[in-house]
Design a binder for these strands. Structure first.
Lengths: 219, 219
DNA sequence: TTTTGTGAATCGATTCACAGCG
DNA sequence: CGCTGTGAATCGATTCACAAAA
């Protein structure tokens, strides 16, 4: 409550965009580009030059009016910020369709490592999927402590999600990424990010329909 | 540009929460509950009573100070708003790990119907997955027109996403849900929702780490 | 009482607009 | 010049606070 973190808290939206910039910058660097202007990065991110400059200002990064931003430096800066000291170890709970797709998606990408997966079904435990060993949920606390896991990813049915979240919190996880279509209750200070696929599709369907209706009514 | 839609545009955040309320209300109704107060709905949604009341005000729904909101009426109202006239027909492009998980996730839920899936790989076409027929991408325009599809879901690798988006737009889709880790450029007025899994995990990892650091520095 | 409906205040995020620099 | 860095303005979303209703 009373201690001031080294850096001022950076808003979630900004962190999200930095994650995007990182990927774009990695790609630019791989193409051999060395410098980038805010308007170029903005175009790639489908954003505005102002937004890009504001974000870089937020993390205290400076460019030069003449040459723009040096990609290698900026990238190192963002990577240092997002992936602090060491790689983040992550645990997946729920090895169903979605869980396996998530493992495949993140497999050997970026500075995040899936150190363990958990599932209730005995036929799924003991296997290794995408380099990630699958344990029974009963071993969750033990494995999370041993592997120094700070982040949990929940991909279980809605009815089980809160119970799993409670176990993860008890096991000492500090952040949760939740794919189940319920909102989780967690102790204050713990970070939860919800990926709600139903909500996402509902939003698209709503605005797509609205488009169609406006078009129709203008005939 | 110049025509006024029947209802004033509802902000995306509000639509998202309405999608959540719908699920919560369906559950309450299934449990036999008839009425609900804003503070009860807020607790389920991990939100505030003010927020709930404001959202319902936005869609023009009224309750009674004594009895709260009548669940069946509210639900009908939200469902009518989200799922306009008819069911929304959706097309999936990219039947990989993630694409299949998405199909399984949405299968026979809610008022959204996956009317077609597309993939480049010939060995995937012709099959039926979760009640959804898989076509070669070359037939995209034809099938989308025939099935009256207004929404496209993109689950292809990053490098192919923009090309697929262009095809969907050409085929007449009005909204896109994009799971590929790139931002899409689409004509103005078309709605795009990004689900960026890398960004989501980066955010959780960042804040989880920050937690750990604050804890360490306070010792 | 308790709870709704809502104008007003607040908070946060984005955009503007321009001084300063190379 | 064209670009960055940034204070100020704007825009949007959330929360407050209280009158009205039952």
């Amino acid at each position: 409550m009373s201690n001031k973190p080294t850096a001022a808290a950076i808003p979630g939206n900004t962190i999200g965009r930095l994650s995007l910039y990182r990927r774009l910058l990695q790609e630019l660097l791989a193409q051999g580009t060395r410098q980038v202007y805010s308007h170029q990065l903005a175009r790639l991110a489908v954003s505005t030059p102002s937004q890009v400059r504001r974000d870089l200002m937020t993390i205290g990064f400076s460019g030069s009016p003449r040459r723009g931003y040096t990609i290698s430096e900026l990238l190192a800066n963002i990577e240092g910020l997002l992936a602090r000291s060491i790689e983040t170890s992550v645990a997946l709970v729920g090895v169903g369709n979605l869980g396996r797709a998530i493992l495949a998606y993140y497999a050997n990408r970026q500075p995040v490592r899936f150190a363990a997966a958990f599932d209730r079904a005995p036929e799924k435990t003991g296997r290794i999927l995408h380099g990630c060993r699958c344990y029974p949920v009963s071993e969750m606390a033990e494995v999370i402590a041993r592997e120094q896991i700070h982040v949990g990813v929940i991909a279980v049915p809605a009815a089980e999600a809160q119970g799993v979240a409670d176990q993860l919190v008890l096991a000492g996880v500090r952040g949760i990424l939740n794919f189940a279509p319920v909102r989780l209750h967690v102790p204050a200070g713990l970070y939860v990010e919800h990926v709600d696929l139903m909500m996402a599709l509902d939003k698209v369907a709503y605005y797509a329909h609205q488009q169609v209706e406006q078009q129709d009514s203008s005939r």
